[in-house]
Design a protein around this nucleic acid. Structure first.
Length: 406
DNA sequence: TAATATGATTCTAT
DNA sequence: ATAGAATCATATTA
């Protein structure tokens, strides 16, 4: 980027450019296209036909300038040793010095060439993937989105899609929403605060540097870089804010939306319905999708809850048939009674009693007594009749829905 | 308050 | 996808 420069920075410049004249006071110094000092003037070029730059005259010129620069440097170096007033005065004097632009330009170049140029490379910010993730999540949770409502609702529905919520979920829901709104509010306030602080600080630093660029060599580029650094710092703070916001949302979600935490038992009537179905289909307690829907409607729960219930029931029944004996008998009895009352329908006592009544298949359960008629349905190997290939004859003789119709 | 019941979730195998 | 099994976390009961 930078063109070749005189080998020795400052002194060389001053010295080799002994005449100093071309440099002095030229406003164009800041962006001098030919950075090299002009070639040594012809020997005879010196006399009084020099431009009337108002400089020293004649033979003393070179010495004067050299002393001049040395003087400036000295003043700069010792400026801190002086009292404030003195320093201010000196500063002013330096500022007005005709050599100042040239000197500054040289100093700036040197600075560029040395330390700062090394940091140039790492300017590119490859959009931290983690930050992107955080942003996405906050957006998805409705914290960072446009406004309240849509986002939160989406989050809730996403969380409940698998489990299904109990009817009284609306209370939880509004609680969750208000909490989420709180988080959202805090997040936005903080974000704004940081944003504001960042601009404030940036402006401050820029002003400071601009101000200082009058007394020390600061290039606009350097200011720009500094602004970049500040922004990076602040954005890392913002990342932290986003991270903790995400954590808060996660905690909130697990507190409010994890259905396990607010488990409600199903209503008596609902379990009744489910049990009735289960025990009347004990040989094959796998309700079809339609049956599940029907049951869900009857119980006021979701289909997936019905599935959960049957999953739990099957496994728990199978694990300990003995424990469920009483229940089984009860429902079998109920079923039988119901069948007898509505006797016009051809409602055979169903599979429970007859179909899978293979008394040799007790699963280590002591034969309770003579009433052990309704405990069957489980095979010796611990599984129900092969679901995968239901033998045509195994299906219960009656309609699946018959016992649960309203 | 411990023990048990129960609805939900997660993991694995099919 | 679905079922089984294990497990979690809460609800209920003794």
């Amino acid at each position: 980027m930078l063109q070749q420069q005189p080998q020795q920075p400052l002194t060389a410049n001053g010295a080799s450019n002994g005449r100093g004249l071309p440099l002095s006071g030229h406003p164009g110094m800041a962006h001098r296209a030919p950075p090299l000092p002009p070639p040594p003037p012809p020997p005879h070029h010196r006399p009084a036909d020099e431009p009337p730059a108002g400089l020293e005259n004649g033979a003393e010129n070179g010495h004067e300038v050299r002393r001049d620069i040395g003087d400036i440097l000295h003043q700069i170096m010792t400026i801190t040793d002086q009292s404030l007033d003195e320093a201010q005065a000196k500063k002013h004097a330096l500022n007005c010095h005709r050599m100042k632009p040239a000197l500054f330009s040289v100093l700036c170049e040197i600075k560029e060439k040395t330390g700062l140029s090394m940091r140039n490379n790492q300017e590119e910010e490859p959009q931290d993937p983690q930050l992107v993730r955080l942003d996405n999540m906050l957006l998805a949770e409705g914290v960072a989105g446009p406004e309240k409502g849509g986002g939160a609702a989406a989050a809730v529905s996403a969380a409940t899609s698998s489990g299904g919520m109990s009817p009284d979920s609306s209370l939880e829901h509004s609680d969750y929403k208000s909490k989420l709104g709180q988080i959202r509010g805090i997040y936005h306030t903080e974000l704004e605060k940081y944003e504001q602080a960042c601009t404030e600080f940036t402006t401050h630093v820029m002003n400071l540097l601009r101000e200082q660029s009058r007394t020390r060599p600061v290039t606009p580029r350097e200011i720009e870089r500094m602004v970049g650094i500040i922004h990076r710092k602040f954005s890392s703070i913002q990342t932290q804010l986003k991270q903790s916001t995400c954590e808060a949302v996660m905690i909130l979600r697990s507190r409010f939306l994890d259905a396990r935490r607010k488990r409600r038992n199903f209503s008596k009537q609902a379990t009744e319905v489910l049990n009735e179905y289960f025990y009347s289909h004990l040989s094959n307690p796998y309700p079809s999708e339609e049956a599940k829907e029907e049951l869900a409607k009857q119980c006021g729960i979701t289909v997936s809850q019905v599935s959960n219930w049957f999953g739990n029931k099957r496994i728990r029944y199978k694990k300990n048939i003995g424990k469920f004996q009483e229940e089984a008998n009860l429902y079998a009895m109920k079923n039988a009674l119901g069948a007898r009352q509505g006797d016009d329908s051809p409602h055979t006592p169903n599979s429970t009693g007859s179909g899978s009544f293979s008394a040799d298949l007790f699963l280590g359960v002591p034969p309770v007594n003579g009433e052990a008629a309704y405990q069957m349905g489980v095979q010796a190997n611990g599984s129900w009749q092969a679901r995968s290939s239901p033998p045509p004859g195994t299906s219960p003789p009656h309609s699946d829905q018959s016992d649960n119709s309203d």
